[in-house]
Design a protein around this nucleic acid. Structure first.
Lengths: 180, 180
DNA sequence: ACCTGAACACCGTTCAAGT
DNA sequence: ACCTGAACACCGTTCAAGT
């Protein structure tokens, strides 16, 4: 009963549910996350989950929140370097493809999301864009689009994506310099 | 049984199934497309669908194919005008959000997709990018990303997306001019 | 506080059978 | 050629009941 997480911190049953959900998500994709499989992974029956969690939507919303926090952390070190920011964005999304998909594709459950989380993930992008909202949205769209298409396997196997990224970032950097 | 479509052309039972699927998709989103509801819309029981279609994956693949053909058609008139191309891309995706989602997000079922369809949709983008593959991928990533985030409701309600698009396209245009 | 079995309204799909 | 009911292995969720 002294439930402890990997880092030794005390962990609620609810956190254990979310941890298991995150593992199943990364192993088998979004449709692998079923209440019955999740229960199974915890050695319990599906109805028991509802004592710790409202339902499946809440689980997905909680994972979205985790993803946003992790993204914010991963982007922060890039500072105001546009290229470093792009590299960090792509690296995180490639390392956590399912979680990235969950966090970026579905509408945020803004009711459920604690305030500030969304902004924290957006802030590094805005900063790398020199505080210009249009530039920030262009940068975000570009990074999201390239990563989403790459994760979906939509580019030819022999496509030189590093070159595409370099081209795109170069274009935005020039535009930003001219704007300043 | 002289089944005819909206344009008067003779239509196979299979096409009727796909038409109904497309309607359900656009009305209720991807998860509304169930074999039972689809059958219902056709006045038939679910098992009957399997006489006209292998299964649900084939239906989705067929809709993806339709989407790619429509996108190719929608983009063609833009010629080599980058801004016109971006406008056409965004307009189509906004007018057919569910179909766009279906066509862009999931891995293409390349086994099932007739050869040339994917290329036909990509060609106008490559052309607008002046034949430069890196520029084309940057343009595609940018357009897809902005549209995907917009359709997912990820921008603030008061965001000036026209301005973001203008900024992004301006950046790519300058880069393209310098490259030439 | 935590877990259970039984049940409900759903899924996609198969199959033997009917016209 | 086209459709059917019954069935199977799944879903998410509720609820009364047990410790």
């Amino acid at each position: 009963m002294g439930a402890r997480g990997a880092n030794g911190a005390r962990v609620s049953r609810r956190d254990e549910v979310l941890d298991a959900a995150a593992r199943i998500l990364e192993d088998g994709g979004p449709e692998a996350v079923t209440m019955r499989r999740l229960a199974d992974a915890l050695g319990v029956r599906a109805p028991s989950l509802y004592k710790h969690v409202r339902g499946k939507p809440e689980i997905l919303a909680a994972l979205q929140e985790r993803a946003l926090r992790q993204i914010a952390e991963a982007l922060a070190p890039a500072g105001d370097d546009l290229a470093a920011m792009a590299r960090a964005y792509r690296a995180w999304a490639r390392a956590n493809p399912r979680l990235y998909e969950l966090s970026s594709r579905r509408p945020l459950d803004r009711e459920r999301l604690p305030p500030g989380v969304e902004e924290a993930a957006a802030a590094p992008i805005l900063r790398a864009a020199g505080g210009d909202r249009d530039a920030a949205r262009a940068l975000w769209g570009l990074a999201h689009g390239l990563v989403d298409l790459e994760n979906a396997g939509r580019f030819p196997a022999d496509a030189d994506l590093d070159a595409a990224w370099a081209y795109a970032i170069g274009a935005l950097r020039t535009a930003s310099a001219r704007h300043a």
